[in-house]
Design a protein around this nucleic acid. Structure first.
Lengths: 220, 220
DNA sequence: AATATTTTTTAGATTAGTTTAAATTTAATA
DNA sequence: TATTAAATTTAAACTAATCTAAAAAATATT
């Protein structure tokens, strides 16, 4: 298993977060924005990471994590989230005080430390923000996906996937402004046909039929 | 207050440990040996630290910490020792497993974290090795110094200072091979005149009169 | 399809920290 | 005191990570 510097670890983590937990290619610019550096630096670093086999990279096409890279990113995220639990639960930090400190603590190298910390905290499954904590093998339990149609009035979620992947459906999604990662809130449900009025990103409101809402998957 | 990099922090800490908690000049070679680098690197770094006013440095004469530098070193050592207490007391580490991890944790920057950790651990005064924990202002309670003459047979200590600082006495110390930091063990005490046979660094044995042993201070 | 715009990459330079080898200073010794 | 040995510093070069500016490729627009 390759050794990564602190900076390389931060790149991996950024790529993981930007890839939306899937394997879409992440752009140089997006990474630069995320970790507050220049696209030029990202270009260099990404080639270095590709040489270490933790990302796949083709010039001008962006990057995505290899299996090994994903596991490493998740191990860093595991540490970050376990430390967050410790800070909030044991040291009485407020949930909005923990991020910067956890950002430092996540780079501490000691498998024994993390194993003991996990045990000490009672093997928590979620961090103080509700995000799942990956296991020691770099595996994460995805949040269960629900259909948009299962939401009640006033409930909301994040668009995670679609069941119907036909070109027509995707084109329709595009037309009504529904995209992966969008925040949706159910404003109203028409009892007669189960159609919903939904609000996208707290702004635009649209109507979707039951047939459509049954084909949209969300996480909460 | 100046900001130090992780590497600079390690230099400060090394200089603190090598200066025997006093203000003797620490040699370039000694620092290089301590932190596993070359004397050339130390020369460069030490000039940088002098510019930041955390050490005093004159070429070819070695360095010693300024008041500010000592405080900073002690704040790092405070963090190191508090983390050691946490690892041993809470996470059930064995005392010989903690050093490498504490070496990483001591560089985490968060005054709140250390304040809360201190509180969480019940404001411990000593680390698992018995070393005192400096307070948040970079002040440390020195271990009490005893005279060599107060040691019983088979007891030992580390030479910490001398009461008589005359040139003659120091020359005599030098002659018999007693130096600051040397480990001494009392092998035998002559009841008649209270003179002692002492072993230095587990090797050389010499005889010292009561008059001499009353003027040598040790820590244990 | 040609042009303009945006994104991405390359090239060259910079900083922190390091190294090796050579030069210098200090300390030791004869 | 002159010489040798040891410690220290300088010089030049290297690595990791970064930046700015310019070149190249991809995308969008007319």
């Amino acid at each position: 298993m390759v050794k990564l510097s602190l900076v390389e670890e931060n790149y991996l983590k950024a790529i993981y977060h930007l890839s939306g937990h899937g394997q879409e290619n992440v752009s140089t610019n997006a990474i630069a924005l995320q970790i507050q550096t220049t696209p030029a630096s990202v270009s260099d670093m990404v080639r270095k990471l590709a040489k270490k086999k933790v990302v796949e990279y083709t010039k001008y096409q962006g990057v995505n994590l290899t299996n090994e890279g994903t596991k490493m990113a998740l191990r860093i995220i595991r540490k970050h989230r376990l430390w967050e639990v410790f800070l909030v639960k044991e040291l009485k930090f407020h949930w909005d005080q923990v991020h910067d400190v956890a950002e430092q603590l996540e780079h501490i190298q000691s498998p024994l430390l993390i194993q003991r910390l996990d045990e000490y905290l009672g093997f928590p499954k979620f961090d103080p923000h509700g995000d799942p904590i990956p296991n020691e093998h770099g595996e994460i339990e995805e949040k269960p996906k629900l259909t948009l149609s299962s939401l009640k009035e006033c409930e909301s979620g994040i668009i995670a996937a679609v069941k119907d992947t036909s070109a027509e459906f995707l084109k329709y999604m595009d037309k009504i402004g529904v995209y992966l990662g969008a925040q949706v809130t159910v404003m109203d449900i028409e009892q007669f046909d189960r159609s919903q009025e939904i609000e996208i990103d707290g702004a635009k409101r649209i109507f979707v039929s039951k047939q459509v809402s049954e084909n949209i998957l969300i996480t909460q």
